[in-house]
Structure formats: C-alpha cells, structure tokens
C-alpha cells in the first residue's frame, strides 16, 4: 500500500518535473554561453500553442511536436535578433518578449479557433504516446515511478545527457563555453560571438519549445492560456543552482517537481487551494536565496583558503618588473631627456 503510494507520488514527481527539466536545460545552455534566459516562459508558451495547432491541422502528433519545436526556436531567434543584432538590453528584451507572448498566444488562439482561453473544445489534438516498459512492471516503487511515463519524460532525461555531451565534447559546445567565459577570446580566434549567441538561443528555444509541447500534448491535451505559469522561471532557478550543468539542472528541476507534486497532493485535501498554489513559487524564491547565500559563502571561503595558503610564502606578488616608458617618465608632460636617462639606466 505505502510502496504503491510512494511509487505513484514519484510517478507524478517525474511527470511534473518534465516541463521544468526542459526549461532548466533551456536556461542551462544559455548560462554556459554567459546569457541569462528569462524567456523560456515564452518559448514554452509558443511551443505549446503551435504544437497543438499543427497537430490539429495535420492530425499528426509528430508534426505537432515538430511545429512546437520550431515555434520555440523562432522565439529564441527573435531574442537573439533583438539583443545581438539590435543590441537591446537583454533583460528588457526578454521582458518584452514575455509580455508579447502571453498576450500573443491568446490572440493567436482566438484568430485560429475563435476561443480565447483554451483549445480543448475547438482543436482536435492528441497527446504524445505514453511508453509502457513491461519489464519494470513488477519492480516495486521504481516500476510504478518509471513505467508508463510520457515519451517526453524519458526525452527530458535523454536531453539532459545529450546536452551534457554536447557542451563538453562537441566543437560547438566548446565554442559556446569559450564565448560564455571570455567572449573576446572567442572572437579573437574567429569564433563569431554573435553566431554563437544565435545558435545558443536556437538550441535554448528548441528545448523550451519541447517543454511547451509537453505542457499541451502530454501533461494535458489542449492549450490553455498562460498555461506555463512561471515554469520557465523555475527552470532558470534550477539551472542557476548548478551553474548550467545539464545533469545537475535536471536533478534540481526534479526537486522543484517534488514541490509541485506536493502541491497537487494537497489540493486533493481540504487545504485552501490558493495557498497551496503558492507553494512552488515560494519554494523557488527560498531556494534561489539559499543558493545565492551559499555562492557568496563559498566564494569568501575560497579567498580565505587561498590567503592562508599563500601567507607563509614570501615573494608572492606578480610584480610587473619592467619599467615602462609611462612609469619612467611623464608621458603626458613629455620630458625626453629624463626618459633617455632613466631608460639607459635600466
């Protein structure tokens, strides 16, 4: 009985984590490139809407999936266009895109269906298939947890692993990290920083778009207005906990999935719905603050450790020993004889 309940709970954790994992990965790739991705929210919204629409038109979930991916990529590229080509402030541009997307998806939904809040009544769309893993059926807890999840739930885990390999080992991944750490260095060896940003935003958009597709074609089977409800930001938070490490970001997203799952469970009890709904957001804020404090602490400790290491060693200064013209004689006032004298004395 209780094993079954734990299994079911974990099942729902995994299910609820799926969009968060995609959002976290979408933020993670940006973090590796030194970018701050607040727009996963928009990517997911468009992915969710376009996915459902294409699915409805063509009757194929797979084309719907593809459509959702494209929508996410386009959203990402728009941000790149505004910030890289247009040199708009990154924060402001993303706020603007989020604003335009939350209204824009509703508007588009209306244009296509005539309905202003949901596609459930007007578009015939399906969900992506659930995958049965019969060999897991009899394993306690784990079986219940992993079996019969949506395709994209497995996809999320796979995506984290692939992204890890991509960032660590692929040429493009190495370039993305180089740009993130020192854009000037990358530029100086001919890696185009702006192209890398565009690419990063496209990949980020792809991941966000898939997350959106899961929202409307996995988690539920229709698009509802503002259905992403801050999941993009939660993903951002998960990614920043581990400085953009994809596997770590996935695990952190799962932690947020737990708070989602608890909130869902509590809704079934007598607890006031609205207060329960606050839970995931409150957890995010608290976690974000805790991480920030930890980051500061470790930074301070590192400095102190280094300090104690070097304190006993003499001659630790990396002194610029050479005398420059600047330092030897006043370049501004320009006395040449002093320079000549000083210069020859060295």
């Amino acid at each position: 009985m209780s094993a079954l309940r734990i299994g079911s709970f974990l099942y729902s954790v995994l299910r609820l984590s799926t969009p968060l994992i995609f959002a976290a990965l979408s933020a993670a790739i940006c973090e590796k490139a030194g970018l701050f991705n607040m727009a996963a929210e928009s990517m997911m919204l468009w992915g969710a809407l376009i996915g459902v629409m294409v699915n409805g038109w063509t009757g194929s979930v797979w084309l719907g999936f593809l459509g959702g991916c494209c929508a996410g990529v386009v959203t990402g590229l728009l941000i790149a266009l505004a910030t890289v080509k247009g040199k708009a402030d990154l924060m402001l541009a993303q706020i603007a895109i989020n604003l335009a997307s939350s209204g824009g998806t509703i508007f588009m939904l209306y244009v296509v269906t005539g309905d202003k809040s949901t596609s459930a009544m007007t578009i015939k769309s399906q969900s992506l298939p659930k995958i049965a893993l019969p060999f897991l059926k009899n394993v306690p807890v784990i079986g219940r947890m992993l079996n019969n999840q949506n395709l994209l739930t497995y996809g999320a885990i796979l995506a984290a692993i692939l992204l890890m390999i991509f960032i660590k080992r692929s040429r493009t991944g190495v370039h993305i990290r180089a740009v993130g750490e020192n854009p000037n260095a990358a530029e100086s060896v001919g890696i185009s920083v702006s192209k890398t940003y565009f690419l990063t935003w496209a990949i980020s958009g792809l991941l966000g778009g898939i997350g959106g597709v899961f929202m409307s074609m996995g988690y539920t089977s229709a698009f509802t207005k503002n259905m992403v409800a801050g999941r993009g930001y939660i993903g951002l938070c998960a990614s920043s906990m581990v400085r953009g490490n994809p596997i770590g970001a996935m695990l952190c997203a799962m932690v947020f999935g737990v708070s989602d799952a608890i909130a869902n469970q509590l809704q079934l009890t007598n607890a006031p719905v609205d207060l329960v709904m606050m839970l995931p957001y409150a957890v995010t804020i608290i976690v974000l603050i805790i991480i920030s404090v930890i980051k500061i602490r470790t930074h301070v400790r590192k400095i102190k450790n280094k300090a104690s290491q070097v304190k006993d060693q003499p001659g630790i200064l990396p002194a610029g020993l050479s005398l420059s013209l600047d330092s030897l004689y006043g370049i501004a006032s320009g006395p040449c004889s002093a320079a000549a004298a000083g210069g020859s004395s060295v």
Binding site: R171, V174, H175, R177, A178, E181, N182, N184, A185, A186, E187, S188, V189, G190, I191
Partner: peptide, 21 residues
C-alpha cells in the same frame, strides 16, 4: 592582445586549438 584572450578554465591545448579543433 594586451589583455590576454584566453579561456581560463580550459587547458593550453584547448585554448591553442580553439576554433580549429
């Protein structure tokens, strides 16, 4: 450059071959 154009967390080899790996 006067300010080095290097990626600190990468190795010498990774820096030298950056862009032409």
């Amino acid at each position: 450059h006067q300010h080095f154009m290097l990626v600190p967390s990468m190795t010498v080899a990774q820096n030298v071959t950056l862009g032409i790996e």
